[in-house]
Amino acid sequence: MAFFSVDSGGTDSTGQSLFLPTRYAASLWAPGTLNGPAVCALAARAAERDHSVPGFRPARFTIDLFRAARDVPTATRGRLLRNGGRIKVAEVDVVQFVDDTEVTVARSTTVFVKEAANPPGERWERSPEMIEFRPPETDSDDPLPWFGTATADGTIEWSQDMGAHQNAQRTWLWTRAVSTVVGERPSSFERSVISGESTSLVCNWGSEGIAFINCDLTVALSRLPVGPRIGVEAASHVEVDGISTSTTNLYDSDGQFGVGMVTGVSNAAATIDFTAVDTGGRYSEA
């Protein structure tokens, strides 16, 4: 399962590979459009493949989603904005080709930071007792996501039935990212970005469904995740006048490794009601 396949028949005008969206990249917002994780994954893949160097780690990924990406040939265009001794910054455009016209649908910035020893001294961190996230016991080969909802006694109730978790309670997700490109295993960085995009889902999802669509994503990473699954925990959500801001904590089997943040805009006319749509098959797998 992957979001894109490589178009073996050609390249764009700059010689960059063309990628063809698969059914796993399809969005539920509108027919013929691509989901956020697919677009973010392609940008993250390009940044890491073209601009990462030994000793530097991707520490922040930010992408602005300018417009809805369509189910058409897609490419990436990257450039190094800063090449410092401790910080390197790469910019990647996600471009699509519609009626012989090139359209930039998203632009990302990835900050690579040089690894070093932590400075001396002690600083505050959440203690293990303060961490509420406890992943469900599940088969590691199970490709489908698990959804969690807070119960009255403070525990997390897990299941793979999305409709059962459509409420106004705090939400968790224990997910396994698909590949960005057919034939490739997603890197830990790609998986962080793909799962981090679910910040919009777990925070903007309410009792009537999801009616905020995110126009950006930021993932900040203190380390890269280990293991096949990533946990996404709703940390904060504020909405005023049709604008929402949301943050999540990102976990793997060893604990928290990063945070996610999105800005959402009201898209109530296209609300996705997960109690009424088929959330099996392609959507759950993606």
Rank of each mutant, 00 (worst) to 15 (best):
A59Q: 05
R67D: 14
T62A: 14
A116D: 15
P128V: 14
V89M: 09
F133Y: 06
V98Y: 13
F66D: 10
V181K: 06
T101V: 08
P58L: 03
F147D: 00
G85K: 15
V103I: 15
A116R: 14
N118I: 11
E115H: 15
E190I: 00
N167H: 14
T138H: 02
S200V: 06
L81N: 09
K88Q: 13
F189L: 00
A106D: 09
P143I: 03
P73A: 10
E122A: 15
E125S: 10
R123M: 14
S192M: 01
V98L: 15
V72C: 12
T180R: 00
I131Y: 06
S187I: 05
T101Y: 06
V95D: 03
D141N: 11
A177Y: 02
S192E: 00
N118W: 13
D142I: 10
F189M: 01
P135Q: 02
A164L: 13
D93P: 06
L144A: 07
R185Q: 13
L80V: 14
R123K: 13
G148V: 02
S187A: 11
T151Y: 04
F133I: 00
D141Y: 07
D139Y: 11
T149C: 08
S195V: 02
S188T: 12
A106F: 04
T101S: 08
P186H: 03
S179C: 08
A164N: 10
D161P: 09
I194T: 04
E129G: 13
E184C: 01
E197C: 12
S192Q: 05
L144V: 05
R79F: 06
G78K: 03
R82H: 11
A168S: 15
E137R: 11
T180E: 03
D161S: 07
L65M: 14
T138C: 06
N83Y: 08
R185P: 05
S179P: 05
D93A: 13
R60E: 14
A75S: 15
R60T: 12
D139P: 07
A152M: 12
R170P: 00
G196E: 07
R170D: 00
R57Q: 15
M130H: 11
V113A: 15
V72D: 09
G196V: 04
A59F: 04
S195Y: 02
P135H: 05
R134C: 08
R79Q: 11
I63C: 06
R86H: 13
M162G: 03
D142W: 04
W158Y: 03
V193L: 01
V178Y: 01
S187P: 08
R185L: 12
R79S: 12
F112C: 07
V111D: 03
G85F: 14
P58C: 05
V105G: 04
D161W: 12
S188A: 15
E137S: 13
R60A: 12
H165D: 03
L81F: 06
R67H: 14
R123V: 14
Q96E: 11
V89T: 13
G85S: 13
F97E: 14
T175A: 09
I194D: 03
I194L: 07
W172E: 01
S188K: 06
V72T: 07
Q169G: 15
R86D: 10
R70F: 09
G154D: 05
E184N: 01
N167V: 11
H165G: 02
S127R: 13
D142A: 11
A68Y: 08
G183I: 03
P145T: 01
S198H: 07
G196L: 07
D153R: 05
